[in-house]
Design a protein around this nucleic acid. Sequence first.
DNA 1: CGATTTTTGGCAAACGTTTGCTATGAATCG
DNA 2: CGATTCATAGCAAACGTTTGCCAAAAATCG
Lengths: 358, 358
Amino acid sequence: MSKSRDLLREEQSGPLMADVAKLAGVAISTVSRALANPDRVNEKTRAKIDAAAKQLGYTPNAMARGLRVGKSNVVMIVLPGSLYYGASQIVPQVLQAINNRLLENGYTLMIANLARDEASERHILNLAFGGTVRGAIILASKLPELEGRSLGNSGLPLISMLMDMSGAGVPSVVTNDRGAVREATSSLIGLGHRRFLYLAGPEGNYHDVERFGGMLEALQQAGLPETAVVRSGGKLDYQEGFKIGLQAADHFAALTDKPTAVVATSDDMAISFMSKMREMAVAIPGDLSIVSFDGSPVCEFCAPPLSSIMQPAEEMGIAAVDMLLEAIENPGLSSAARKVIPSQLIVRETISVPRSHA
Amino acid sequence: MSKSRDLLREEQSGPLMADVAKLAGVAISTVSRALANPDRVNEKTRAKIDAAAKQLGYTPNAMARGLRVGKSNVVMIVLPGSLYYGASQIVPQVLQAINNRLLENGYTLMIANLARDEASERHILNLAFGGTVRGAIILASKLPELEGRSLGNSGLPLISMLMDMSGAGVPSVVTNDRGAVREATSSLIGLGHRRFLYLAGPEGNYHDVERFGGMLEALQQAGLPETAVVRSGGKLDYQEGFKIGLQAADHFAALTDKPTAVVATSDDMAISFMSKMREMAVAIPGDLSIVSFDGSPVCEFCAPPLSSIMQPAEEMGIAAVDMLLEAIENPGLSSAARKVIPSQLIVRETISVPRSHA
DNA sequence: CGATTTTTGGCAAACGTTTGCTATGAATCG
DNA sequence: CGATTCATAGCAAACGTTTGCCAAAAATCG
């Protein structure tokens, strides 16, 4: 018996709580209490236990603990299928902010990609229903659902980030896509621009609806017709931003009544569009003003430096974690709240008065 | 009893294996076998069990399973302190590739940041020693170590990625930093360049040592003195790439005997450097050729399109996972192997014959 | 100094699986 | 048709913790 035990020890796990107890000369339960609830145990005893634990290099087994208490300290982040964006650092920024915030609170981050295949969906559901995770932050645009199980009714605390799902009962932290684009457009109108090109994300996508909505609101406020804006793109996903920008450039070239300003809904679109404009000898901002969305760090070094609406990735990440932990700790009140963190337009050198006004 | 049981049910967990067994009219152990080892159970019985499981929406509890079998299906990736890079998509690319590959093999990815503080270090060690993770892929440049516990002797299968630690007994998958820079430099020499500016990462950093080493090797091969290259930077970390590029531009401006080619060791450095050159009216590649490192997607749309050595992030991620799974499944042979996946120089429009030769 | 309260320690059950062993029933063979 | 083998099901122990409950010891009070 002790032979096989020792063999197992060789192969695998380290010291057990029982070992610590024996070394310290106390019962297992005392060790457990000393580690979790230090004030419920005599200081001297606690000191002995701490010393023994350190001496043995003892680390409590997380799965045993999790099984017993029926909870884990793992939070899952559900990312959209492809993380691959051209210039944006939003995903790493969000990941980092969330991870740090979780760490401060004793949680660990697990990542899951939600692609279009059943496998990824099933995987996420298993994580949720199998008790592996304690809560989830969703960056994807839909909730996984398969064979009767759905993340939505897993009983798991959920927070949607980037996308407003508070209407569907999922507390959300978002940025004001609509308002930010409206204001940016308004300021272009204020400079004298009257004809716009809008580089769209995928038709029907939440962000595209919001951003284009903001554009239309700005036109309406200024008494301009909807025809003042030409919509380009709409077929490809945001991860194809460079391609969208390239196609939009062709689109632009083919227009007879040229717009004087473009609103791109991602930096990638703007960057590839600008590179094409350079080839076509369209002066920016002389001939054409540009403002885009995301606020990628690289915008500062574009030619010319690109004005962009910066998404507050870190603040959003922190807010999402705080809301999630709140929901985890108070399972009672499900507020389905919505927290809006404003984006900020960073004005650089791609915006000016239109030539016709100069 | 059944009251409190039902209450618990309300609050928390879903159906148990016992429920499935009852519904299917078999014993718990039969259910377990049917789910894990389908051929060890009568087909008819299995069908009943599967139906019952689906009907109840049963998901096995991962922690109970993990505790029993003494293993988890979680792999940890240890990322360096800051994920924040200006334009590079290496981190998301690696994450995605690793995550997908793990998913295919039934594993889950947990992420951990290794910062300079004890907290992050302790956290990682707890994950490793607490049985939470089954193996780890290291992107950070050191192994966490604290109070006698070290990732190195946790008994956990480890793979180092990006950085060669095979000498220290950790199997590694790396790219040939040295060779890639050597060849890029050689081809610049072939074009006639004789004076170089090298934009360095942090002094002593593995990558910087390798890349600068490659540079020197190329000079030596061509019979050029080491003084043919001016080293700029060395103080800041790669995550400060933009700043490094800016400072290098000032450095360049101050040089009397101007180099005709620059080798930047990250795209960020090259991008901000080029933006400064534009201001200073230094023509690229006319006055100055540039080649950089990373192969960020955005390089294609720089002004002018930037030549860069592309790191094979996805292949490396896949290779790292494969090596790790190999090590997990065959705990016997620890080969401490090293797998080198070559980088590839993408030539764009920042390289030409030096003016003096034109 | 005895009685009462407070503190602290120990026993054992429980968390939800997996799995070795045994028992049962079916099937095959002589 | 009985005996032997094989397939399949069931029992119960184990994984490493936490925690309710009780006992013992210490401290306080009258």
